[in-house]
């Protein structure tokens, strides 16, 4: 059982290109990676929007004036 390379012998080195395991899975990994990236961006925007909605609701007129006047 081997996920990739089985020998570092000199006779084998010149034939080795990919050093990583599971050669042939590159496209699947790319798809998973893109899904993670786009998913993260969407999650980040939702998280940020929810945070601002929550903060805005707590910053009503008098509270906001007090916060600004305390700002140094």
């Amino acid at each position: 059982m081997s996920t990739g390379i089985e020998s570092w012998g000199a006779e084998n080195l010149s034939k080795i290109d990919a050093l990583y395991p599971f050669v042939g899975s590159e496209k699947i990994m790319t798809i998973i990676g893109v899904v993670i990236w786009i998913g993260w961006q969407i999650w980040q925007m939702k998280f940020e929007n929810n945070s601002y909605e929550d903060q805005t609701s707590q910053l009503s007129g008098e509270t906001l004036t007090k916060v600004i006047s305390e700002d140094d």
Partner: peptide, 13 residues
């Protein structure tokens, strides 16, 4: 391309 063998650990590149 992200799935090309050169865009990874590669002993020939």
């Amino acid at each position: 391309l992200p799935w090309d063998v050169t865009m990874g650990s590669n002993f020939q590149d």
